[in-house]
Amino acid sequence: MKQNQANRWRSHIHQHAESTGNLLVEIFHYLALFAIGGMTAWAGTLAALDMLAKGSASIDDILLLFIYLELGAMVGIYFKTNHMPVRFLIYVAITALTRMMISDISHHDAPDMGVVYISGAILLLAIAVLVVRYASARFPGVKPASPQQVSAESHEGTER
């Protein structure tokens, strides 16, 4: 008889601990998302204000704004779907490498093998986007619940 009551108490305590743990994880999750989104918006705003202050925008500056845009979109999709869109990380990497290559070419007179290496890395990342898109279309991890979900052409949120 005492064993049965001890098991009920143990089960009750376990349920409360699990609920409390899940609540704390969700609170941290949302606070972190708001912090990351806020920092991304702040950094993008500062970059845009810096461009306005100097009176011009280089291609480096514009590509930096695209990086901030992709990071903000990643936060928004992750907030809505709880899935990290892997393609967005690859897009950010492609944009960052493009920015680095353009900066390197504009600051040096003669391009060297670094341009070839960066171009190869961009090509590999572009192939990775194709693989991820094919895999997410062919083997979806989450079944679409409704036709109102984010479409495949507008960065679906079903990738992990």
Rank of each mutant, 00 (worst) to 15 (best):
F66V: 09
H16S: 09
F88Y: 06
W9L: 15
I59F: 14
I62H: 05
F66T: 06
E156W: 15
V25C: 08
I62C: 03
I122C: 04
A47N: 08
G120Y: 08
A47I: 05
M100F: 15
S106E: 09
H108P: 02
D104S: 10
G72M: 06
V142Y: 15
A48E: 02
G76H: 05
W9K: 11
P111W: 13
V75A: 01
P144T: 06
E153K: 15
I90E: 01
D60C: 10
R133T: 13
F88C: 02
L97M: 15
H29K: 12
I27A: 08
K54R: 11
E18F: 14
P85V: 05
L124R: 02
I90V: 09
G76D: 03
A152L: 14
L89A: 06
W42A: 09
Y117R: 15
I36E: 03
R133N: 13
G141N: 11
W42I: 08
V116D: 04
S154Q: 11
R87A: 09
E156P: 09
M74R: 01
S136M: 06
L89C: 08
P147A: 03
Y134G: 04
H83L: 03
Q5H: 11
M113I: 10
P111Q: 04
Q15H: 15
I90P: 00
R8L: 08
E26R: 15
I105W: 05
I36Y: 09
A41I: 08
S136H: 04
I122P: 00
L64P: 01
S56I: 10
S154W: 15
G44Q: 08
A73P: 00
A48I: 15
V131N: 05
G76R: 03
S136K: 02
Y78P: 00
L130Y: 14
T20A: 07
F79T: 05
A126P: 03
K54T: 01
S103Q: 13
T95R: 03
R10M: 07
I67K: 13
I59D: 06
Y117V: 15
V150R: 15
I77L: 07
I118Y: 02
K80P: 00
S119D: 01
K143D: 12
E159M: 10
A41W: 08
H83D: 00
V115G: 00
T40K: 05
A57D: 00
K2R: 11
Y78D: 00
M84S: 01
V131H: 14
V86K: 06
A137M: 14
F139D: 05
D60H: 12
R8F: 06
N82G: 01
L46A: 10
D50I: 01
Q5K: 11
G55R: 07
D61V: 05
Y30A: 02
A135D: 07
G72S: 04
S146H: 14
I27E: 08
Q3G: 05
P144N: 12
A48Q: 04
D61L: 02
K80R: 12
H29T: 08
D109P: 00
A126G: 05
L49G: 01
T95L: 14
D112E: 03
G141D: 05
L71F: 07
L69T: 14
R160C: 05
F79N: 00
M39R: 13
I127E: 07
K143G: 02
R87Y: 09
A96L: 14
F88L: 13
R8V: 09
Q3P: 02
A126K: 06
K54N: 02
L49N: 04
